[in-house]
Design a protein around this nucleic acid. Structure first.
Lengths: 210, 210
DNA sequence: ATTAGTCTAGACCGATCAGTCTATTTTTAT
DNA sequence: ATAAAAATAGACTGATCGGTCTAGACTAAT
């Protein structure tokens, strides 16, 4: 096995695929176009990944790792209150959206363009989504929110809404708007009395269990 | 011209296409599958729509009309406060999500799986999106919000987030969570003093103009 | 220098795609 | 009843798709 090339063939393929799958769509991106963009031979792709489907799975991994890196490394290193840590997530989103090669979330885009009934894409993307939401819930829990499940769901909606809006409008400001809305949500969960907590919790739990 | 068949060939095609484009993806849906589902002959599709692309445009129209019907007919008929009218929009979303043939928003899904650089899909979907956001802003304006543009953007994020979450989780509860978050947003814009208004407005305007 | 492993270029395959066309039948209007 | 219009089934085309395969070139480590 080679020690480590400047950019390995495997990585060149992964980067090109990630870019093209989001920029042009998965079905619309042919193997040949990936190879051209990666500057790699046809055989190498199948030697490393075996199929287009496996290549997509690898792209899923890299995108999930980006999120895990945020939650497990970037955010914990911040010296600030839990509340500000939650809001800092939206700053990370803004940086992501501002990248010139941001064209949406590959999970969302993949689910959008694949069969919705019992397909592997939904399962894989859904599993990663659950792991991401779990980390978000941990973050929310540390903030001492009255109803962490509900707050997590609300923030999740804002995050997904920001991603889609940023994809459609090509404007990273969506993250800032989402941050302001998140502040509203956090402010209200602080000051709202807990009498409507149970009902809210039940709804959040129901959404989660699906 | 025929008077009006029980379900015209044109409409059968439109309904099948709308269903399949969202359930299975646009690129993944072959013409033949649409024809099978619609129970219509191949030639009829091209006689009525000319191309798959035109058929997609027609599906865009029907989805946009759904939104326009909500804003222009359903919501105005409600005898309630402007604030409750805004929240009622999320109840309409919930009903939409609960339909057995809901598989996401065709605009979002179409943008997700098409070329993001200068493609007609983005223009057409974006134009309809602007019209929908405009109607939402009117609704927000009627509620006498301090900063209608900002509130509109926040609600827009919640709506798009709810649509995507409902698509991924297949659970209409996303609309209810979004409604609760929308209440938070509305509550905060009522009680927040206007000193941070200008900054917020500028950000909202910047997002809008793209 | 040799050998094994990796990469490249590109021909090739079967399948499927959007779209065309023809021939036939059904529907509709008069 | 008849003629025009609309819908049918399905063969067909050229292009493109994902994937396979071969032959040769490059790059190590021994």
């Amino acid at each position: 096995m080679t020690k480590e090339a400047r950019t390995s063939t495997e990585e060149k393929l992964l980067l090109a695929a990630r870019r093209l799958f989001c920029r042009a769509g998965i079905h619309a991106t042919g193997i040949t176009r990936i190879l051209e963009e990666a500057g790699v031979a046809r055989g190498s792709l199948y030697a490393h990944y075996g199929s287009k489907e496996n290549l997509l799975k690898a792209v899923f991994d890299t995108e999930a790792n980006m999120w895990f890196h945020w939650f497990d490394l970037d955010l914990p290193h911040l010296k600030c209150s839990p509340r500000e840590r939650i809001l800092a997530l939206f700053d990370l989103l803004e940086k992501w959206f501002a990248k010139e090669d941001f064209f949406g979330c590959v999970f969302i885009n993949a689910v959008a363009e694949h069969e919705k009934d019992s397909r592997w894409v939904k399962d894989v993307a859904g599993a990663y989504r659950d792991q991401i939401i779990d980390r978000l819930r941990t973050l929310v829990g540390e903030s001492g929110a009255t109803d962490p499940d509900m707050v997590t769901q609300k923030l999740g909606l804002l995050i997904e809404g920001a991603i889609v809006t940023a994809m459609v409008t090509q404007n990273s400001q969506a993250a800032y708007i989402a941050r302001l809305a998140a502040e509203d949500v956090l402010r209200c969960t602080e000051c709202v009395s807990p009498e409507n907590g149970p009902t809210s919790s039940a709804a959040a739990a129901a959404l989660e269990s699906t």
